[in-house]
Design a protein around this nucleic acid. Structure first.
Lengths: 229, 229
DNA sequence: GTACTTGATGTGGTTGGACCACACGCCTAG
DNA sequence: CTAGGCGTGTGGTCCAACCACATCAAGTAC
């Protein structure tokens, strides 16, 4: 057992037992090193790993923002992991898109019309109507789809959706340049978004799922996947 | 930008550009530190992160097994990340099981009867028939379900399935103790497994998906979820 | 009395150097 | 030709020191 793994186990134990909860602060690195009878180096390596997994956040200085505190950002961990494995060409982009369709369709079919996340999605749609710049539109589009996923009320699906999005963010951004007529595409996206929202609010989960699948696959098809770009 | 993140970027760049591929070896820590003009500590922190994400594997000593080599184990990264966030009570086990049902049902509906993974699944079923010990049976059961997921041919879904399984492994193991009659349960599981495999080989994806969903949910229901255990 | 300056304190961030355990492969003694 | 030992290179660990930063308290000027 390597030393930093010992520290990892200790911290995970503190988390499991509830002695270290969300928002809680880890002892200072030097203090923790002395407590566990290991070097500060090993403590830092463990903290780095947990930081990469979205469990901790390290802040320098003094005061409430400083120190190493417990956060909960599953998306960060899954996202960078997926991105890295895409970089090694061992997770095809095709599979990521396919998985996203699967998760988001399911989320749409399960989304509750009364969910606050769905209200947020509706607000985002309104903002997209009065939005001219492509970049802003795309940012709102991302948030709309994430809100849609949240509306299903499954934290794991939400986290995975967010991480999938993050993993192919650069890729999707490049695709936008392939579109022949952005204004026409944006108009179509707006219409489809409204259709999805309408299907959910009328409790037609099956139709919502189908619309989401068509929406995503249609975009990637138009933006060049499969057409040589 | 913190120093170790610089190293992370460099390595990710090498991976993206293909100059560092699966099985390739990273320069020695001391060498890399000199190349990038950073301390060995920072290099090591970056390597730790990538190791936790299943991208690198560090080995001491000399020879082919030594050094820091590129691997591809997306499951490890996603699994430990999910497990940690379950520990912080921010990913309910219920959501994990629900997601597993979703992914595995989809995989069953998409599984190709000619897939090598499906043949592997069939072999595992035969072994389970001639298996007496509970522990061995459960180990084979895990491998059967993972093989089922692989048969869909989507690397992302496979990785996520594996990581979900890993994240709740301890939890599921504890559940087994709640079963009133293990032999009866094992017999039922065997029958259901065969039914799933039969549905796939007869190209009845819809039925396979439904059987998988019933199979998983039935097990958790019997083992105590929702019945106070 | 109030407002500003200044220093003490504590945090993570980074570095260089040192030593250890390990595994391989050469090289020598038999 | 064989068997053992030693050199070399790898990651693993630890230490001591220094830096940058943020806060807070004491002190000072007004």
């Amino acid at each position: 057992m390597r030393t930093h793994q010992l520290v990892l186990q200790w911290i995970e134990g503190q988390l499991s037992s509830g002695q270290l909860a969300l928002g809680g602060r880890l002892p200072a690195e030097r203090t923790l090193a002395e407590q566990l009878q290991v070097s500060r180096t090993s403590v830092r390596e463990a903290i780095r790993v947990l930081e990469a997994m979205g469990v901790l956040r390290a802040g320098v200085g003094s005061g409430p923002e400083a120190g190493t505190v417990v956060i909960a950002d599953p998306t960060a961990a899954l996202g960078s992991a997926l991105r890295l494995h895409v970089a090694t060409s061992h997770l095809p982009v095709k599979d990521i898109v396919e998985t996203r369709v699967l998760l988001e369709s399911w989320a749409a079919s399960r989304a509750s019309p009364e969910s606050p996340a769905l209200a947020e999605a509706a607000r985002l749609l309104e903002q997209m109507d009065t939005c001219a710049e492509t970049e802003t539109f795309l940012a709102l589009d991302v948030r709309f789809h994430l809100a849609l996923a949240d509306a299903a009320g499954n934290a794991v699906v939400s986290a995975m959706m967010g991480s999938l999005r993050e993993a192919i963010q650069d890729y999707a951004g490049r695709l936008t340049g392939n579109l022949p007529d952005w204004d026409a595409t944006a108009a179509r996206l707006r219409t489809e978004h409204r259709g999805i929202l309408a299907a959910i609010t009328t409790h037609d989960g099956g139709r919502a799922a189908q619309l989401v699948a068509d929406h995503i696959e249609g975009y990637y098809a138009e933006a060049g996947v499969g057409s040589g770009a």
